[in-house]
């Protein structure tokens, strides 16, 4: 495993921990999109169907369990926990996530490497992950008032995707036959979605002012 991949996984892990910290400790999910969190739970549930059948490494299995466990517990917190539920900004989180799930499913049925259930589900999870952040970005833009933890959560998620791109470039040059168009194009699309957010996040940090997004 190269350094980019490890750093990518770690920023992904940090993003989840930041969100759990906010929800578990402060008992608030203000500014967090439940739609995006439900999409991530679906992403991990469909991608890690191989968790008990294909053993890669202890690292892989543990990380998969963490991402599955954390994504479902975040959804549980936001839907069921009395205090957390109260801070959920339901009126602004109106993105219709079915509009993302269905096209991704159709695309996975059309474009995949192998036509097997596991492979199509895996491909679906790759496509869905690329766009799963959209409800969150829309919510940020609508609420305008972005607290530090929410900003950091989205920043670390974006950093994870950018580092994975560096990981793919590295692997392409160091491993034979390492060509994965589906993952690369989806990953690139996903990273580009963060570009706008990154621009405002970094300029607010440089100018030492509170992060706001233009309407």
């Amino acid at each position: 495993m190269n350094a980019f991949r490890l750093a990518g996984d770690m920023t992904h892990l940090i993003s989840v921990l930041v969100l759990l910290l906010k929800i578990h400790t402060i008992k608030s999910c203000a500014g967090i999109s439940l739609k995006t969190q439900e999409l991530y739970a679906l992403v991990f549930a469909t991608r890690y169907l191989d968790i008990f059948t294909d053993f890669i490494s202890l690292y892989n299995t543990v990380m998969k369990l963490i991402f599955l466990g954390s994504s479902f517990s975040i959804v549980w917190y936001m839907r069921r926990h009395k205090l957390v539920q109260r801070s959920y900004d339901k009126d602004h989180d109106t993105f219709r996530h079915q509009l993302l799930v269905l096209p991704c499913l159709i695309l996975a049925l059309l474009i995949h490497e192998q036509f097997t259930f596991k492979e199509v589900m895996w491909t679906f999870s790759i496509y869905l992950e690329a766009v799963a952040i959209l409800p969150q970005l829309v919510l940020l833009q609508r609420t305008r008032n972005i607290d530090n933890l929410t900003g950091q959560y989205v920043f670390f998620l974006g950093a994870y995707r950018s580092l994975y791109i560096l990981n793919w470039i590295y692997r392409y040059f160091t491993e034979p036959h390492y060509v994965h168009w589906i993952t690369w194009i989806s990953g690139l699309v996903q990273t580009l979605l963060y570009a706008d957010f990154f621009y405002y996040y970094i300029s607010s940090w440089k100018n030492n002012v509170k992060l706001t997004l233009p309407a």
Partner: peptide
């Protein structure tokens, strides 16, 4: 490519 390589990623 069969995609076996990529499955070691998360």
């Amino acid at each position: 490519s069969s995609g076996t390589n990529v499955k070691d990623e998360l």
